[in-house]
Design a protein around this nucleic acid. Structure first.
Lengths: 215, 215
DNA sequence: ACAGAACCGTACCGTACGGTACGGATAGAG
DNA sequence: CTCTATCCGTACCGTACGGTACGGTTCTGT
């Protein structure tokens, strides 16, 4: 068969998932009906069921498909001066805010949260595992690099990362999930990222003289 | 009419809302059917529609009903020493974690988030306005009292509060909403509250000598 | 005691959706 | 050219739910 699938799904199937995501963003979970997706994507319901099993399989496929678009920090082991490390942190904070405030991200998180009550939250675990986990690991790698270069200090990397996350996101994610329009002030994200990193250094930063002492 | 309504709803109606909340906690939004609520509460669907208008009205009433059970810090204007202020902060942090991790709270937040896509997120705004807002105001009053007594310092009370919130909650709320079972480690909340307040003082605390200087 | 309102339980209606089946079109394999 | 597999479009089925109607019962105010 000549179908060249890049990520587990054929191009045709990915196109269908894209249309399904558009429906989800526009109208929430209830807008993602099998008939609606088939009509929007110009495919038959029969094909949907052959490709994704059932409606839940389709929803899971939408999450898996979207999760295959996350970039992350790669630790190259090279030394990094304080200015660059700080810039990396600010960039991470800004990226995080951008990702969390994205329409598709919000729609998928709403979907997974809405399903969390029943069926032991399959979609929630899928979303965390495929989306969030990779972001977390990239950020922790960044923190480890910062500690190795004596820019910051902490005992528990995971704990430090969660503190950074809290300082950056605060209650913004939930407010956006709840639909509070004022929360998505995209133009304020840069200042928010700066402030968060500033506070993070106040908690975990190593002063230059101390850095020399412990080096 | 002899019906003594305490909070906008008669006792009978509140009992019905309680049963509806149980259904919501047990099975999510889809479990809250008009027939199901009527059966569980031993009332007729006709009464449900007379009391709450339609299904959305019932959901809104559930939120309003639940929101009428929030205690908050009341600022009495009296001086407060540092130990007591710190204890108040830790108690607030612990209360916040307890509230957010409560089954009913999680279920209602999931409900409001699930509806946030369509109908301009009525329930979301209702939940924020009736539930969260009061918690926020109580906490900000507490912070103001702490600043008045020179225990902490900040420029923007709202900004300082959001920092505190982020340090306390981090990404815990969203993880719980997604159904991550490991997130609801109830027994760790005390330590988390302590740590968060510790960090908050590191950012906004006023040292005793500085306190004397500026007094 | 009586009238009227509120209420319960059940039955009923229309609709929308998940899932299946089928006929016809298309395209690649031999 | 023919056979076969995939696919589209539509029609179809069963169910579940939101909302309404109605008869019978209990409660309330006078």
């Amino acid at each position: 068969m000549g179908e060249h699938r890049e990520q587990g799904y054929t191009p045709r199937q990915r196109a269908v998932l894209e249309r399904a995501l558009e429906l989800l963003v526009a109208g929430g979970e209830k807008a993602v009906t099998t008939a609606g997706v088939a009509r929007a994507a110009n495919c038959s319901k029969e094909s949907l069921y052959r490709w994704f099993g059932d409606r839940d399989g389709l929803l899971a496929a939408m999450i898996a498909h979207q999760a295959s678009k996350v970039r992350t920090f790669a630790d190259d082991g090279e030394p990094m001066d304080r200015v660059h490390f700080r810039a990396h942190l600010v960039a991470f904070a800004r990226d995080l805010l951008d990702v969390l405030s994205g329409e598709v991200s919000l729609a998928l998180n709403r979907l997974a949260i809405g399903q969390a009550s029943r069926e032991e939250s399959r979609l929630g675990r899928l979303l965390v595992a495929q989306g969030r986990r990779r972001i977390d690991e990239g950020a922790i790698a960044l923190l480890e690099a910062g500690r190795r270069n004596r820019h910051i200090a902490y005992d528990d990397a995971d704990d430090a990362y969660r503190t950074l996350y809290g300082l950056v996101v605060r209650d913004l994610h939930v407010r956006m999930l709840l639909g509070e329009s004022g929360a998505r002030r995209h133009e304020k994200f840069a200042a928010m990222a700066e402030g968060a990193v500033e506070r993070f250094f106040a908690l975990h930063g190593v002063r230059e003289k101390e850095r020399a002492d412990t080096a």
